[in-house]
């Protein structure tokens, strides 16, 4: 078992936002967490990598990654884990980059932080990675500032950076929600390809149950901070048990009487 989260609760100040979340993930498996905004799905994956905003803190439970409880990690251990074995892709990869530094310089800084590569080697690795995400003109992209790229390009850069160290676990927080439908499909596909090559396990958080169904082996449906349904994706899509899941599935637009989900 690569990742095992048990009885996880997260509080913001006095308010408990997430209660008793259990999930587990094997190597190379893809888990999707769906739910409407405010259901606590993003909070769960942020808690796993210890990056809850301001007031947030884990108020109960365990997070075992490769058998170690992450909640007992020291700062140094976090730095060693984050960015190499476990990484994250955000909704807008542009905003998680320093706005006044070029993408190349940040990419190279990141690579060299976790490896003994020289500047030249790091440049090559970075450009190879960008090409793997089907980005044209990698040299230009390396010289660009985050704000100069389009949303789709930014997400591809985000995925390229997240996958450069072939992590065991990739957490993706609404990675395609800010993109138009065509770009969404492309980025998801490219991300899946790289992860399958490297046998990286993914937890993807999305409100788009279509994306979830396309990508995932397992599915968790969350509502108001709790899991309402969990299991194999195919089973849930075919035979949803809870009312809430049924509503979510019904909300998926149908074209010509055919649902996009299956």
């Amino acid at each position: 078992m690569l990742l095992e989260v048990s009885e996880l609760s997260v509080s913001y100040g006095e308010r408990e936002i997430v209660r008793n979340v259990n999930l587990s993930l094997d190597e190379g498996e893809v888990l999707a967490i769906v739910g409407e905004s405010g259901s606590g799905k993003t909070t769960v994956i942020r808690a796993i990598l210890g990056c809850l905003p301001h007031e947030g803190r884990v108020s109960g439970g365990k997070i075992l990654f490769e058998g170690r409880n992450l909640l007992e990690n020291t700062t140094t251990e976090w730095c060693r884990l984050c960015g190499t074995k476990a990484t994250m892709v955000f909704q807008d990869s542009g905003s998680i980059l320093d706005p006044i530094r070029r993408i190349g310089s940040q990419f190279i800084e990141y690579i060299r932080e976790h490896s003994p590569m020289t500047q030249k080697e790091a440049v090559k690795v970075a450009e190879d990675m960008l090409r793997k995400m089907h980005l044209p003109n990698t040299e230009n992209i390396m010289k660009s500032y985050p704000f100069e790229l389009s949303g789709g390009m930014r997400q591809r850069v985000g995925v390229a950076m997240a996958m450069v160290f072939k992590p065991r676990l990739l957490l993706a927080d609404e990675p395609t929600s800010a993109l138009d439908v065509t770009t969404q499909a492309q980025v998801v596909k490219e991300m899946m390809e790289i992860c399958q090559q490297d046998k990286t396990a993914i937890i993807i958080v999305t409100h788009n149950i279509g994306v979830a169904a396309y990508m995932s082996d397992k599915l968790i449906v969350m509502q108001a901070g709790e899991i309402v349904e969990a299991g194999r994706t195919n089973d849930i899509i075919a035979r949803p048990q809870s009312m809430y899941t049924k509503e979510l599935l019904d909300a998926v637009p149908q074209v010509g009487g055919k649902s996009y989900v299956s």
């Binding site: 990598l49 990056c51 905003p53 700062t75 140094t76 976090w78 730095c79 060693r80 884990l81 984050c82 960015g83 190499t84 990484t87 994250m88 955000f90 807008d92 905003s95 998680i96 980059l97 320093d98 706005p99 530094r101 800084e109 990141y110 932080e113 976790h114 950076m161």
Partner: peptide
Amino acid sequence: QEYITGARIRGFPMHKILWRH
């Protein structure tokens, strides 16, 4: 800012984030 979270997720120690970003 979000880019601080980004830098932490990329595994940079706080002092480097502070000086460089």
